[in-house]
Design a protein around this nucleic acid. Structure first.
Length: 573
RNA sequence: GAUUCCGUAGCUCAGCCGGUAGAGCAUAACACUUUUAAUGUUGGGGUCCUGGGUUCGAAUCCCAGCGGGAUCACCA
């Protein structure tokens, strides 16, 4: 047994062995038939007490209150917690009280999974509880869970709050802070609601490649990888737009995909290197039609989660029922800055940025400059859902030119609570125009714009065969979930947000220590003394190590013989 | 990347002007037949993030590093 375990972990391993010694399998293979849940009991027992005279429930022990020959424990399952009442003479009816006195009181711990057979009743203090008649150990827990206590008023004590630990060990987080499970349940509802809405329209869910040889469809730095068999570089997709449009060319009327996108860029509370995007394309429609579709869809999502369309997000109340306000990009800048940028050329825009104290650089084209003004002065002000429409052509190479307004494209972005959550176009289906737009992107790239889009020849070829007029939409699912669940960081809506890898302590194996002559029973002691590697040990002073061995022996109350000094000296040769 | 705060027991946290570490919960032992943040009594448990420096003496002061949080920048 390693001395690197904490005292509590060692005790639990000993308890595990003692359970085995009693002939009980702490990890049984048999299924345990669950007939009810904590939530079901708490909600329905009073209405139909007769139905709860024989129940089987399973979950984790989350607290124990032992009082002589009777005890209470809280059992937590996926739906919540219910109290269990255990009476010694009920579970150990004969002379042998081992099951209660030893197994329940000594060998079980907080975190263990238990299957319980019993009947539901109400205690003198009025708490609905399960009176245990039989108990099955389903799984022994070897690491102590942080214990979070709650009083009658719901105040939380000693809560497990360290964000690093919560994200790295989400299984612990959701076990001891089960209220966070609600976010993920709602996340699932968001996707489910959207999916069934799309399906009801007859559009089909598809899957397109994640490994792509050309990372098209958006402007971002990709993750690069390599395919050995083909010996070619591949990229994790930054978008799936071009593939979905190829499927419209192929003859589908509506296609959509929920999928992970990967962008090799910064991480913060609204960005994770992998995130979930929804993209949907519908043939013979345009961006005006798409606005109505988005309103209908989001209204259903809000209803599914909150049962109403007006929801609280931070300090704001946001109304998701349409129609949403529509504002052209130029009008929105005029509205919030009083400046009309619609007629300005690049030089005038640059001057305007300077006056507004917005930083610019030489690589920025006209579209980019307007975007800077917009994101600096307008974006944060758009609290209620607002469509910003009709973007400058320069910043949108995949959208169709505006039907009436020169220099603009048919595009909208939906802003809610000051953040963009959707982006849509009347998709560009003119192959010649599309090629020219890509060429302009190449020009921007040569000016140093790292976000300029790359050309996808296969996509251009597909357009040359002919794509029907199409409306397309992308929604950042993580950000939508943040809105719908009132969370301010993306990490809270991802089960496993990206983290810096945990640093692994460099530890020599027991064999390595044996090789230099350390007796087996002393290896754990050496490790306890802080020498994780042979190297570290050999860097220490031999005399001091020898002296410390005696000290550790005394401290750990070990009944083993100290190696002779000559032996210890051999370790350092 | 910049600024700033933080890192002490399994968990949450104290620890002042530098003198080799404390509390609550958890855990161990005993008591207790309806408690509920159960209770009472008694114990055990620490690489004070790591490495340097100042000092007779560092959890504490200084420097560097690592990890994390917040804000900002970048990134639709």
């Amino acid at each position: 047994m390693s001395t690197n375990l904490s005292e509590q972990e060692t005790l639990r391993r000993e308890a595990l062995q003692n359970i085995r010694n009693l002939g009980i399998n702490p990890y049984p293979a048999e299924a345990f038939a669950v007939t009810t849940t904590a939530q079901d009991i708490l909600q329905n027992y009073k209405l139909h007490p007769d139905k709860y005279q024989q129940v089987q429930i399973a979950g984790r022990i989350m607290s124990r209150r032992i009082m002589g020959s009777a005890s209470f424990a809280e059992l937590q399952d996926s739906t919540g917690r219910v109290q269990v009442y255990i009476k010694r003479d009920d579970i150990s009816p004969g002379e042998d009280k081992t099951l209660y006195n030893t197994v329940f009181k000594k060998l079980l711990d907080i975190g263990d999974f238990l299957g319980i057979k019993g009947f539901v009743f109400t205690t003198q203090t009025g708490e609905i509880s399960v009176h245990m008649q039989e108990m099955t150990i389903l799984s022994k827990s070897l690491k102590p869970l942080p214990v979070v206590k709650r009083d009658e008023d719901g105040h939380i004590y000693d809560s497990f709050t360290d964000p690093e630990m919560r994200y790295r060990q989400r299984y612990v987080d959701l076990t001891v802070n089960p209220e966070f499970k609600e976010i993920f349940i709602n996340r699932s509802k968001v996707v489910k609601t959207m999916r069934s809405y799309f399906d009801s329209k007859g559009w089909i869910e598809v899957e397109t490649p994640i490994l792509q040889s050309v990372h098209g469809g958006a402007a971002a730095r990709p993750f690069k990888t390599h395919h050995n068999a083909l010996d070619v570089p591949l990229f994790l997709r930054i978008a799936n737009e071009l593939y979905l449009k190829k499927l419209i060319v192929a003859g589908f009327d509506g296609v959509y995909e929920f999928g992970k996108m990967f962008r090799n860029e910064g991480m913060d509370r609204t960005h994770n290197p992998e995130f979930t995007g929804l993209e949907i394309y519908v043939a013979y429609q345009d961006y005006i039609w798409m606005m109505g579709m988005v309103e209908e869809c989001l209204e259903q999502v809000a209803l599914a989660i909150h049962g109403k369309t007006k929801i609280q997000v931070g300090q704001q109340e946001i109304e998701f029922a349409g129609p949403y306000e529509k504002l052209s990009m130029y009008d929105s800048i005029q509205k919030f800055t009083g400046i009309d940028v619609s007629e300005m050329d690049e030089e005038a825009l640059r001057e305007t940025c300077k006056n507004l104290q917005i930083e610019v650089d030489a690589s920025m084209g006209k579209g980019k400059l307007i975007d800077e003004i917009f994101s600096e002065k307008v974006e944060a002000q758009l609290i209620q859902p607002t469509y910003i429409t009709d973007y400058p052509i320069e910043m949108t190479p995949l959208a169709k030119k505006h039907r009436t307004k020169e220099g603009l494209v048919e595009r909208f972005e939906l802003f809610v609570n000051g953040k963009e959550i959707a982006n849509a176009y009347s998709e560009l289906n003119d192959p010649i125009d599309q090629r020219e737009r890509f060429e302009e992107q190449l020009l921007l790239a040569s000016r140093g714009d790292e976000e300029a889009m790359v050309v996808d020849e296969d996509f251009l070829r597909s357009l040359e065969y002919g794509m029907p007029p199409t409306a397309g939409l992308g929604i950042g699912i993580d950000r939508l979930v943040m809105l719908m669940t009132n969370q301010s960081t993306i990490q809270e809506v991802l089960f496993f947000p990206q983290m810096r890898p945990e640093k692994k302590a460099n530890i020599s194996s027991t064999e390595d220590f044996l090789k230099i002559g350390v007796p087996a029973e002393w290896v754990p002691v050496i490790q306890k003394m802080g020498f994780n590697t042979v190297d570290e040990l050999q860097k220490a002073t031999p005399n001091k190590v020898f002296n410390d061995l005696g000290g550790m022996r005394k401290k750990l109350k070990l009944d083993i013989v100290i190696p002779p000094k000559e032996t210890v000296m051999q370790w350092f040769l």
